[in-house]
Structures are given as structure tokens and as C-alpha cells.
């Protein structure tokens, strides 16, 4: 079984409004899976179905090949976008309570909790109430509560919001560490740079439909533009430009460079990279040659505005 989670043709309607229109996903085991989409696309509805908070109208969800059942709650750790803890309950008691609700025995929960409190150096918070903590501090507790029961699948909705850069990094490192230990992670966010940095797989949901799904590189390959950024120092610029425009579409561009060179964006069209290189090498000193790889951000905006 290579997929920890499979969503099959899930439909969810609220009255007349369709929140999910036959959405299917496959989350490979051990991956960090970015679930993207504009606000109101249906991500939260999908996440709630995976968490068995709501039931799909039709379709099914398989966790490790088994149909979702009540005992699966202990396999999943969920951090919702709207964070929340009991404000007047003490930190330690609260974490123990929530871990026990996830089916963890009291003693295990206590041991794990001690470990995490030491790791984050927050032992002094045990008897504090949440309302005495700052927002960032409460977020840390929320994160610990989410992962305390050692879930196989971690669902994080905007995990970095509310953290300062230092703590955001701390949490990011923990997520990557957990992933290395084998935890699969579904990661819903609007911060494309963290998707770029962390995700192996992505899926994009827009207006209740899944539009894109796959390995990050595959998706990018699909969206490649065949444009190259080129830097060149040419003794005969006019001749070079003549040669170049014969075969390729050329545009101006800008990138950082230490050389006083020409900066061009060249569309390959239906020619190969080598053909381009030939022209370039013939006409001067090549200082820069990279393919324009579409960013997740580009793909996101392009896909969403197309529809």
C-alpha cells in the first residue's frame, strides 16, 4: 500500500451549495502533500471529511486502504486553521485531556508531553492557563497537542500563521523531522514559498473541483514554458540579435549578475536547447543560462485565473 490516504469521488453539499464536486486525491505514504486552493475552494470541507468531523454525501475515504472508521481518529493529528484551546484550563491538564481523547493512555501521554515540554524548553508552562500565554506560546502548545499522540498522518492547516520567524522555523524543522521519521503530512497553506520548500506533492482545489494533482516536479514539468534566461557578452550585438531572432522569440529580462552582459528571455518555440546554445556560443561569451521554472505561485495564479 503506497498511499496513506485515498479520497475517492467525494461529494459534499450544503443545501444548494456544492462544497466538493467529486474530488479524488492520493496522498503517498511518507510525503509532504501540499493542499492548495483559494479561499472557499473546499479545502476545509475536505479536511473535515478526512477528520470525520463531517460525512461526505457520496464517495469514500480510505486510510491505509481501510475505509474511514471511528478508530482512525488516533491515526490522524489535525491542527485547524482557527486555533483554539480551553482558555481557563491549565496547559498540562488540557494537553493530557486532548491526548486521551485521541485514545492515548494517560501515562504515555504524560511521558510524551514531558518530552516535548523539555524539547521546547517550556516546562514552566505546565500549570499556566492558556489565557496567561501569548498567542505565539499558545500556538506552540497547539502544535504539541496535535502531534502528541504520534499520528501517522498529520493535517496542518496554515501551520505557520501566528508564529514569529524564529518559532516558524522551529516548527518547520519539527515537521521535517517528523516526516523523516515516517509521518505523512498534509499541508494546507497560502504561503507558496513554504510549499516550494517543503512539499513533495501538491494538489490544487478550485471552486469545489480538483484541478491539479501530482509530484511537485511533474506538475512543474507540465507547466514548463520552455523559456530560458540568458546572459551573454557579445562583441557584435547587432549581428547576434539578427542571428537569434531568426530562430527564436526574444524578450528583455532582468536577473542578478556580476557581469555587464545582455539579459534576455528566449522562447525555444519548437527548437532544442542545443540549437539555442549553438547560436549563443557562436556570438559571444555566455555568462548565464537557466530554464524558467514555473513557481508554485505562478501555477496557482495561472490555474485559478484561467477558470
Amino acid at each position: 500500500m503506497n498511499n496513506i490516504l485515498e479520497v475517492k469521488n467525494v461529494v459534499k453539499q450544503y443545501g444548494d451549495y456544492t462544497a466538493l464536486n467529486s474530488v479524488s486525491l492520493q496522498v503517498p505514504k511518507g510525503s509532504i502533500y501540499g493542499l492548495l486552493g483559494p479561499n472557499g475552494a473546499g479545502k476545509t470541507s475536505l479536511i473535515r471529511i478526512i477528520n470525520q468531523i463531517t460525512l461526505p454525501d457520496s464517495g469514500e475515504v480510505l486510510l491505509e486502504g481501510e475505509k474511514l472508521a471511528p478508530h482512525h481518529v488516533s491515526y490522524i493529528g489535525y491542527m485547524p486553521e482557527e486555533r483554539g484551546l480551553y482558555k481557563t484550563m491549565k496547559v498540562g491538564e488540557q494537553a493530557l485531556y486532548l491526548a486521551q481523547l485521541k485514545g492515548m493512555p494517560y501515562d504515555d501521554a504524560k511521558k510524551q508531553l514531558k518530552y516535548w515540554f523539555e524539547k521546547f524548553e517550556i516546562e514552566g508552562w505546565w500549570n499556566k492557563k492558556i489565557q496567561e500565554l501569548s498567542k505565539g506560546m499558545a500556538q506552540k502548545i497547539q502544535f504539541i497537542v496535535t502531534i502528541l499522540h504520534q499520528p501517522k498522518l498529520l493535517i496542518l492547516d496554515e501551520p505557520f500563521s501566528g508564529f514569529d520567524p524564529v518559532n516558524a522555523n522551529l516548527i518547520k524543522d519539527e515537521i521535517i523531522e517528523l516526516n523523516k521519521q515516517g509521518t505523512s503530512i498534509i499541508f494546507s497553506t497560502h504561503r507558496m514559498e513554504s510549499v516550494e520548500e517543503m512539499c513533495d506533492y501538491i494538489a490544487l482545489i478550485h471552486k469545489s473541483n480538483k484541478l491539479i494533482e501530482g509530484k511537485l516536479e511533474d506538475v512543474k514539468r507540465q507547466y514548463r514554458t520552455h523559456k530560458f534566461q540568458v546572459g551573454i557578452i557579445s562583441p557584435n550585438v547587432e549581428g547576434f540579435m539578427y542571428d537569434l531572432t531568426q530562430k527564436f522569440t526574444v524578450g528583455q529580462t532582468n536577473f542578478k549578475s556580476l557581469n555587464d552582459d545582455l539579459k534576455l528571455e528566449i522562447d525555444l518555440g519548437n527548437r532544442t536547447q542545443n540549437e539555442l546554445l549553438e547560436v549563443l556560443v557562436k556570438n559571444g561569451q555566455v555568462t548565464h543560462f537557466t530554464e524558467n521554472i514555473p513557481s508554485v505561485n505562478d501555477i496557482f495564479i495561472q490555474t485559478v485565473s484561467q477558470k
Binding site: 477528520n51 482557527e82 486555533r83 486532548l98 485521541k102
Partner: peptide, 9 residues
């Protein structure tokens, strides 16, 4: 907003 955490369990 703790409700969502609780009812996921």
C-alpha cells in the same frame, strides 16, 4: 475555537 480540535477526536 477548540471545538474543531475536539470533534476531530
Amino acid at each position: 475555537r477548540i471545538i474543531e480540535v475536539i470533534i476531530s477526536s
